[in-house]
Design a protein around this nucleic acid. Structure first.
Lengths: 301, 301
DNA sequence: GAGAGTTATGAGTTTGTCTCATCAATGCTG
DNA sequence: CAGCATTGATGAGACAAACTCATAACTCTC
């Protein structure tokens, strides 16, 4: 039994137009074609779709059932087609972002809030990149953007610089290290370090400082939420290293001190990794622009 | 842009089978055909549905969107096709019943309760036939059965007798007319008559007794619910005429008396009007059989 | 009961989808 | 990393399905 979209459109048109002849016009098709079509459908389904007793034909019970299906299904299809049309001219699309850097949520969220206003037809989502390998997921089109500070040379993937930031040391204002103008690797040797629960290679403090210097903190405690990390730091349960855009908010609080790492300070660059093909898409460029703006805002705040 | 069911099935199969080649087998179709099909769809939609970088092809974002549509739409269609298949061999169908006789709900409801157990796939509904003309609705296939006691000679419509009943006079046991062994038209002249809110022609008491005798009751009060009618009668706010199957329940209550209308009593016959074509349907015959049984049960109770 | 309007039917043409045969690309394996 | 196996793409031709045209049959209205 071969129900086709054509049949659903036919049923709908016949119902709306109130007759096969008028429906034929509406569908830009011969009345004969419709008649054949209906006959074929009825034969195959083995069910009478119309009441032929009266002259402008009416839908039978089964026909009404089919009409209901048409009214459920056709709008869904038409919506998808509109979505695809939008996708073609770059007005709609998907923007599923994986964040490898855990604190990125802090600045990304306001960016997406703004983004959403200009690109309502783009399907936006953020996925914390902790549970899976973000870059393979990007290649497989499971996600569309990966926020990362470790560019890799992958074919078909482009890393676009977003902005620079500095990993900054944070401790309670009562902490002994508050006396030092800047913090070095050796300073961590006796400390409890609070980090996000990700592998060391993805943490600036390890990849940029402790691992090269072969320094191991006294203890490491993994905490999910930024707010909780700050809470623990304030109550002297440990020290932490966070991006400057995060500590900017607490910089002027008397509970905390912040210090640069090494005398010159560390600088890291954040990238948006995308599939190279997607870079043409207008909303993609807009996202990168907005990210830069948001970074400027945070740095001047 | 021509999305067809074939495409939805293809997308689903490719996703399930994890590749075009395997999907082709599953669909009993050439791999070539699928390849052409996809290409055609992508060309027309102007959207890439698959990621071709890797060898077993994967769905792109747009492809996943299409898959979602397929998963929404295909089950609905398959359900309808199953419904039609059931309809063909008479296992499923629609049974929308219009009741012209207002009190019929009382015996019809238990009938439908039983019916539902044998014919779970038949879509059952009752519509009080007050608001619309039931017989034209039957012809138009808006309903499938009309319960009526006034058979008409309509082409394509068959009236099948269900059972006989007697309209019975009801009054409070304290009512003066309780003294009489049977009630005649003249007896209503001074009374308040409580009826269902339908036109007189459809009320047995008028069509069978008062109108021919040209008797007008002192007052008429229209009440929707049978229970309320009995309540009012018990408190002597009026008298009423109800089918025997209704008053049977109250016959032995000391609050009421029931009396036959005229010396010989009136007898009316209830019919199920159906479209003649529908009489072959097995569930239709069963409904009529069940109605008879229910009537016997009520009469012997 | 004549005529307008509506649906059905048959024959022929067009359109589109499938198969067959073959090529190109990818990925697995030793 | 070479070679083989698997997977997808492409072109030409076969075939079926759906459409058009012409015309017949039917209903409803006046």
């Amino acid at each position: 039994m071969h129900i086709e979209f054509r049949h659903l459109r036919t049923i709908r048109a016949i119902h709306e137009a109130g007759g096969v002849a008028r429906a034929a016009e509406q569908l830009n098709i011969t009345q004969s074609a419709l008649s054949h079509q209906i006959k074929g459908l009825e034969d195959q389904a083995g069910v009478e779709l119309f009441v032929r007793r009266s002259k402008p034909m009416r839908l039978s019970a089964a026909g009404q059932r089919l009409l209901r299906l048409a009214n459920q299904v056709l709008p869904q299809v038409e919506a998808l087609q509109a979505e695809f049309a939008g996708l073609r001219d770059g007005k709609s699309g998907r923007l599923h972002i994986a964040i490898e850097c855990h604190a990125c949520f802090e600045w990304l969220f306001p960016v997406l809030e703004t983004f959403r206003k200009s690109w309502g037809d783009v399907d936006v989502d953020i996925r914390p990149g902790l549970a899976f390998d973000a870059l393979p997921a990007l290649v497989k089109e499971d996600v569309d953007v990966v926020i990362s500070s470790d560019p890799e040379d992958l074919p078909g993937v482009t890393f676009t610089p977003l902005f620079d930031y500095a990993p900054v040391f944070v401790a309670a204002s009562t902490h002994p290290l508050a006396a030092k103008p800047y913090i070095e690797a050796e300073d961590f040797r006796g400390e409890t370090l609070i980090t996000y629960p990700v592998e060391r290679a993805r943490l600036d403090i390890f990849s940029q400082l402790l691992t090269p210097a072969k320094v191991e903190p006294a203890a490491i405690r993994q905490v999910e939420l930024t707010a909780v990390i700050l809470l623990l730091v304030a109550s002297n349960r440990g020290v932490s290293v966070l991006p400057d855009w995060v500590v900017r908010e607490v910089k002027y609080s008397s509970d905390y001190i912040t210090r640069p790492l090494t005398r010159k300070g560390l600088t890291r660059r954040l990238y948006a990794a995308t599939r190279s093909d997607d870079l043409d898409k207008p909303y993609m460029g807009d996202l990168i622009r907005l990210a830069g703006e948001e970074a400027r805002k945070l740095q001047s705040a």
